[in-house]
């Protein structure tokens, strides 16, 4: 069973390295969106540092949205999704592998470029670490939540906009808690409690979301 998990992850990663634009474009988009804000509102470092957490998190949300489309789409078109449903391994498990691979390809790169953005937005070191940790815990939740939305809308012709309408309201708590943690770090307060809350949400999402995703896929592929 664990083998199947690894195999799916490997297959996803290989496929992504063959089509590198799929991974690079959302990251590229993420960086561009963040760059637009200083251009739009001015370059005062104090102001930028003040609004940086919100900007980075909203940009991460939008970038995640962009990347969701490829999560199940190809598998849906070429029929391997149906095969996954017929496989002896539980669908929830296979779906978790897909989501994990998706996070490796989108969440992780966002983490990797975040130091660059910290420089752009004149973040202090303390604040940057808070940002990094919230991204580390928060982006997997985004991947899980988004996968539910993708699984629900995959069979539809105009699923893209609908996906964002469904998913964005549900991701508000992550946005709120993450930016609160970063704010707390900016003011030199402890933000462990907020990280723990995010962690609890991650655990809850990891246990519950695969079932929702599997159920939604069964609706979409029929």
């Amino acid at each position: 069973m664990f083998n199947a998990f690894l195999q799916i992850v490997r297959k996803e990663l290989l496929g992504a390295f063959r089509q590198q634009s799929d991974i690079l474009n959302p990251i590229w988009f993420f960086v561009i969106v963040v760059t637009l804000f200083p251009l739009g509102i001015g370059t005062d470092p104090a102001l930028l540092a003040r609004i940086a957490p919100g900007i980075i998190w909203v940009a991460a949300l939008l970038a995640a949205l962009l990347s969701f489309e490829r999560l199940f789409k190809d598998d849906f078109i070429d029929g391997s999704l149906e095969q996954m449903m017929l496989a002896p391994q539980p669908l929830t498990w296979l779906v978790s592998a897909k989501v994990f691979a998706h996070w490796l390809l989108t969440g992780l790169p966002i983490l990797l470029v975040s130091p660059l953005l910290a420089v752009f937005l004149s973040l202090q070191e303390n604040t940057f670490w808070a940002l990094f940790l919230t991204l580390l815990i928060g982006t997997p939740i985004l991947s899980l939540l988004g996968s539910i939305g993708v699984a629900l809308t995959i069979g539809l012709r105009k699923g893209g906009v609908l996906l964002s309408l469904i998913m964005l309201p549900l991701s508000i708590p992550i946005l709120i808690f993450s930016t609160m943690a970063i704010d707390a770090a900016t003011f030199g307060q402890s933000y462990i409690g907020l990280l723990a809350l995010l962690g609890a949400m991650l655990v809850a999402a990891m246990t519950l979301a695969p079932f929702a995703i599997a159920a939604s896929l069964r609706v979409s592929v029929s």
Partner: peptide, 15 residues
């Protein structure tokens, strides 16, 4: 968004 209302009902229920 679903044209098949049975599927639509199930999708809406999951959401």
């Amino acid at each position: 968004a679903f044209s098949d209302k049975v599927l639509a009902g199930r999708a809406a229920s999951i959401l």
